[in-house]
Design a binder for these strands. Structure first.
Lengths: 211, 211
DNA sequence: CAATTTCCATAACGCTTGGTATATAATTGA
DNA sequence: TCAATTATATACCAAGCGTTATGGAAATTG
């Protein structure tokens, strides 16, 4: 009769892991997987690469993360949360120019190859499109569209405040900024140094309308 | 005695093809192969994809082009000669701004997906870097460096003529332009339309120093 | 301590990959 | 007409891919 009261444990999965606990840290393994995907792309990363970098065997990967595709999605979540956080912080900058600068300097930090492999996981994934990773590519493009929409909105607000010259459309400016950042990612993936990328950003900012 | 006079046929290979003539046109097949590499990348393009698009069987490909890697290099040669010719034409424009505009408008024409697949074969190839296509990637990067060096030289000449503000370094400007063009390639490969790319170029040109 | 649950490791699976051996067809020159 | 030579077509190969089944070891629960 009172069964309904204690009927909830199925929804609280973290209560008591009955069997043998796993011997590896999921987050650490996921970080290692991210590094592999980042440097070799989705299709370029083999399960052998992943097992070696993650330090666990294939059955463990499949038990903990599902299949390769779902592992990639989780790695991409981690990437966006950890390496692309600056994207959201940038929107809170006071002026449109400051937003753009924050976005580009953040891109340097994220793409420069001192921390992690060079380039951008999104760019790498959307460029390398075998027939297999079609849904992967679609996922990346959806996330990118969402990021771009937020920036358009920010620029629109800036224009309403008179912070942006009227002859610049928010959509066009967003596409421009993103093209620049994505191009920097291409160069970073091809061995460009942090100084190289800084020259690109400085040049772009030198051209930004001052009035 | 007069042998020396008629000793040249080894250098005139088109004289008499002794055996069975091939039934396909090499250039047509190479164009088809280029389309496959362009839309799926080097590693993403399988031999099955290539045979189907080229309309010939695997042994014919290997007999005519060597292996997959050498086929890619030949397709890349064709791509650069046919689709990247605007890169060299741009350098002959009278002003630095005209050079930049020619470069970007040409990029739109080459990357926009009405003619051939979207995006840029160089960007696709250098981004998609499995462990296998390492030498392929190196080849692309070498060609890109050569193109960039030519643009640096052109901007340097422009600066000597007073055609370019002194506070803009030719190297930095080149990296900036290339980042923009490469970013446009990323967007074109993700389904951006010609109008989308034109907005990017117009925005960039609106920021170009006028004085 | 027994039972149970979950883990790790090996090995195999079915499939696709780039590349090739072999046999047949088509042309040239004698 | 008969060899010599070259292209085509079918089939095959070894290797690598993502994925899964199996068997035993280890840790928590009752």
């Amino acid at each position: 009769m009172e069964i309904a009261v204690t009927d909830a444990p199925a929804t609280t999965p973290c209560a008591a892991p009955k069997g043998r606990p796993r011997e590896f840290c999921v987050d650490t393994a996921l970080t290692a997987a991210l590094g592999v995907f980042w440097s070799k792309g989705y299709e370029g990363a083999t399960m052998a690469d992943l097992t070696q970098a993650m330090g666990i065997t294939k059955p463990s990967i499949y038990a903990a993360f599902g299949n390769k595709e779902s592992l990639f999605h989780k790695a991409l979540d981690l990437y966006e949360a950890e390496k692309l956080a600056y994207t959201r912080e940038a929107l809170q900058q006071p002026t449109a120019r400051a937003v753009a600068e924050y976005l580009m300097r953040g891109a340097i930090a994220a793409q420069s190859n001192d921390c992690g492999p060079g380039g951008c996981l999104r760019v790498i994934t959307s460029s390398a499109c075998g027939s297999e990773g079609e849904s992967i590519k679609a996922d990346v493009m959806k996330r990118r569209a969402s990021s771009q929409a937020a920036l358009v909105e920010r620029f629109r607000a800036a224009q309403a405040e008179g912070d942006l010259p009227a002859h610049l459309e928010p959509e066009a400016l967003t596409a421009y900024i993103y093209a620049l950042v994505q191009g920097m990612a291409v160069q970073a993936g091809s061995g460009a140094t942090r100084a190289d990328l800084e020259r690109v950003v400085d040049t772009s900012l030198a051209m930004w309308p001052t009035r």
